[in-house]
Amino acid sequence: MTSLVPLPVHPAAHRAGVDDPDWTAMARVLVVRPDNVGDVIMTVPALRALRAAAPQARIDLLASPAGAAAAPLVPEVDDVVVASVSWQRLPGPVADEDADPDAELVATLAGRRYDAAVILTSFSQSPWPAALLCRRAGIGIRIGTSKEFGGDALTHWVPAPPDGGHQVDRGLEVLAAVGVPSRGVDLAVTVPITDHPAPAGRYVVVAPGASCPSRRWSPERFATAGRGIAGRGWTVVVTGTAKEADLVARAAAGVPGAVTLVGELDLAGLADLVAGADAAVVNNSGGAHLADAVGTPVVELFAGTEEVGQYAPRTVRAEVLTRPVACSPCRQLVCPFDQECLDIAPERVVDAVVRVARART
């Protein structure tokens, strides 16, 4: 007779009898968040809580090359391990199918002798690849959350928070389950003083870029909105990376007195610029979270790739503009339709800027 294989227990049951880590005894802790800038910024409340629970520990961040740019703004982070991890890469040609894509990273983590790893994910991401990597690196305590079973790769398998919860709350709930209380949900980062001169007078920052085409409002509509914003008395500063030069040029076209900054600012410089603005107009991208973190009101063009409630700014005045569509959340890099979710009239953006912009005396 065939014997039955026991079904995996629910995460809550798996946690029963497992002691919370002794955070006060740890020397080195790794926080894993290897995706985009905005995701790292939304990790700030979790890092702040962890720093308070383990004030003696060195806290390092495992981040992507893009996300690592945010680390200098976060005083709770002591060092950054920068890596393009295999489970975050898009499918494509493999140079050597027999090679271990994460072998070098495993060796790096092993050499740092971490006591614990906290793996933070969105609801649609799995912690198990990172957990397996951390186990290979000899990290004894591995904390994460997931609805699906992944064996003992996690030593502390936290029950999954609700899918629709905000990403900030998700990270804090994971830590609360292992004895780390929240220290607040605000995204406050350190804004450095840079040598990039700010525009004279009052200005609004416009950032037409995003990590993928499906999240980008039309640059021509940005330009129309920019003309309306300029007409209300603001200088419009359109900014982007060197790769976004064409996008910036199109978004600034015909905007009276527009200032364009292409590839001139690192993230620290951008934070300084945004912190001095009356408002920021952005896509659902890292720019929205950066503005939230430096206290600048936001008008956000939110594509249907994600759910608004998981990512919306919450600590500043903000208006999130989107259109409900049946295909949302799609998580597509390129919209297969006509971006109906971003069919937002520029006039609505101008009116929103007027409503949220901070008053100056």
Rank of each mutant, 00 (worst) to 15 (best):
H14W: 05
R15T: 00
D19I: 00
D19R: 03
D20N: 03
D22T: 01
A27G: 13
A27M: 02
V29Q: 01
L30V: 00
L30Y: 01
P45Y: 03
L47T: 01
R48G: 00
L50P: 03
L50H: 03
A53G: 04
I59N: 04
L73E: 00
V74I: 15
V80R: 02
G92E: 03
R112Q: 15
R112H: 12
F123Q: 12
F123W: 14
P127H: 11
I139D: 14
I141K: 13
I141P: 10
R142G: 13
I143H: 12
S146F: 13
P181C: 08
G184P: 04
G184V: 04
L187K: 01
T190Q: 11
T190L: 07
P192E: 08
T194C: 10
G209S: 15
S211Y: 08
P213A: 11
G226L: 05
G226D: 10
R232W: 09
T235Q: 11
T239A: 13
A245E: 15
G254C: 08
A258V: 07
V259T: 12
L265I: 10
G269R: 04
L270F: 12
A275W: 02
D278N: 09
V282T: 14
G286Q: 03
H289F: 06
T296Q: 06
E300F: 06
V308Y: 12
G309W: 11
C327L: 07
S328C: 10
S328L: 05
C330N: 06
D338N: 12
D338R: 10
D351H: 07
V356A: 09
